[in-house]
Design a protein around this nucleic acid. Structure first.
Lengths: 120, 120
DNA sequence: TCAATAATTCAAGAGTCGTTGAGATAATGG
DNA sequence: CCATTATCTCAACGACTCTTGAATTATTGA
């Protein structure tokens, strides 16, 4: 991940509706959700408003879309999110492991590695 | 970290000059840098421009300042950065450890835990 | 106290962002 | 082929963001 991509991703995530869309799609998993369904989940936002934010997120590489019949299905791009974390971490840890350690702790508790944690 | 704080942090980091300031201050360490020195590092940006971006970053909680003689010294708030990572991770890992594992790998390689990695 | 240095504050202006509503495009079923 | 459903595109408008330059505040040393 380069600076420009990180800037785009941060800009995309700095808008309330878009941040909520990303969170929703991550929990929705790989099967994703239709634009209409996402709009309903966003306190019934208009279709043009959804279109605006979804294409913004797609432009930033945080979500992807596929057509399925009349609907267009959006899903989160999980690798983009981990790349962003990696970018933040690479920036932050230069000689300062005290930044990474709390983040790593949060990470491992959140992922709950199934017994016998793998180390890289 | 709550949604509002995360939104503010993402907005702060979505601006090129501010992202560079944060990276610079993180590598500068706890002793920090004066506003003037940061401005010189930012291709000689004007003092009012620096003031604008630095107070934006301070508002978002990503940097803090102290006066030292005539200068005002800024330094990165490392815990804010790890909280942001934690927020992203908590969002992303709900049932999807495949997001966290690459991030965790990046994290541990970047931090280079000194032999006998601690686990939380 | 005065001049010099370091940084902030403020107002103005150009540019970007997000919402709205109307209209266009795409796919389906009768 | 037509009506319906689902979504996108576009123009317009208000709101916000960033830069600039001038004026202001704070600190220091002579």
């Amino acid at each position: 991940m380069h600076e420009k991509q990180a800037l785009d991703a941060f800009a995309a995530l700095s808008q309330e509706t878009r941040l909520r869309i990303v969170r929703l799609l991550v929990t929705a998993g790989p099967e994703g959700m239709s634009a209409g369904a996402i709009g309903e989940a966003m306190d019934g936002a208009s279709s043009s408003r959804m279109s605006f934010h979804l294409s913004h997120l797609e432009q930033a590489g945080l979500v992807e879309s596929r057509r399925e019949g009349r609907s267009i299905i959006y899903s989160a791009v999980l690798t983009a999110l981990s790349s962003l974390v990696e970018f933040l971490m690479r920036d932050c840890c230069h000689g300062h492991p005290e930044v990474c350690n709390p983040a790593m702790a949060a990470l491992s508790s959140c992922c709950e590695p199934e017994k016998g944690a793998p180390h890289v």
